[in-house]
């Protein structure tokens, strides 16, 4: 049990997927201009990442490893993720329309979010057991959501401020992300 808590904390804070491992940065900058979109994206990532982590683990351990097809990892993972996202989208649209309209446009965007594929590959590299993979995927996703929501809060404040013209938008966004990353960097001392 203790191991899982340590794993969760290390995935959320110390090895934060966005700010320490640099994964999933395009949607990070794209969806963080408003708090609502940031929260929507964070929820969608948590939802899809856990399912993708489970599916990727099953794919590796029940199909690729017994058949010695490990060199097909990249192709099979991306196909699993793409079809999973499509399936989740159709399922939500039919059965939970409220959640679907909340996540809405963020679901298809997730296919090309490198955080999802990245976490699946990290789980594979670390050789996690099934339960560890689930905990790690969930914690990485929570870390992603946390960083995204914090960053959106910062960015909403910056929008009010007067910024020199060349620094506007993405440029200052990146510098702000650097400052946030510096704050998360302090957690490295806990490891």
């Amino acid at each position: 049990m203790e191991n899982y808590i340590v794993l969760a904390i290390s995935c959320i804070f110390v090895n934060n997927i966005l700010l320490a491992q640099y994964l999933g940065n395009c949607p990070f900058l794209g969806t963080s201009k408003k708090m609502e979109t940031a929260v929507g994206m964070a929820m969608a990532v948590i939802f899809v990442l856990v399912m993708a982590g489970i599916m990727a683990w099953i794919t590796t351990n029940y199909f690729l490893k017994p058949l010695n097809l490990e060199y097909l990892t990249t192709i099979s993972y991306i196909l699993v993720i793409a079809s999973l996202v499509q399936f989740v989208e159709m399922f939500l649209k039919k059965s939970i329309p409220a959640l679907y309209s909340g996540l809405g446009i963020f679901l298809p965007l997730i296919t090309t979010n490198c955080a999802v594929l990245g976490v699946c590959l990290i789980n594979l590299k670390e050789d996690y057991t099934f339960l560890q993979a689930v905990v790690a995927s969930f914690s990485y996703a929570v870390g992603y959501g946390l960083a995204l929501v914090l960053f959106a809060g910062l960015r909403e404040r910056i929008n009010i401020a007067r910024v020199p013209q060349p620094l506007q938008d993405t440029s200052l966004g990146l510098v702000t992300a650097g400052m946030l990353s510096l704050a998360f960097f302090a957690f490295k001392g806990m490891a």
């Binding site: 700010l19 320490a20 640099y22 013209q165 060349p166 620094l167 506007q168 993405t170 440029s171 200052l172 966004g173 990146l174 510098v175 702000t176 992300a177 650097g178 400052m179 990353s181 510096l182 960097f185």
Partner: peptide, 22 residues
Amino acid sequence: VQAPGAFVCLGLMLCIMNIIGS
């Protein structure tokens, strides 16, 4: 060379590109 530096450095380079481009 650490994570925060990467963000700040890219942000500043983007700013320089904007100045040259404008």
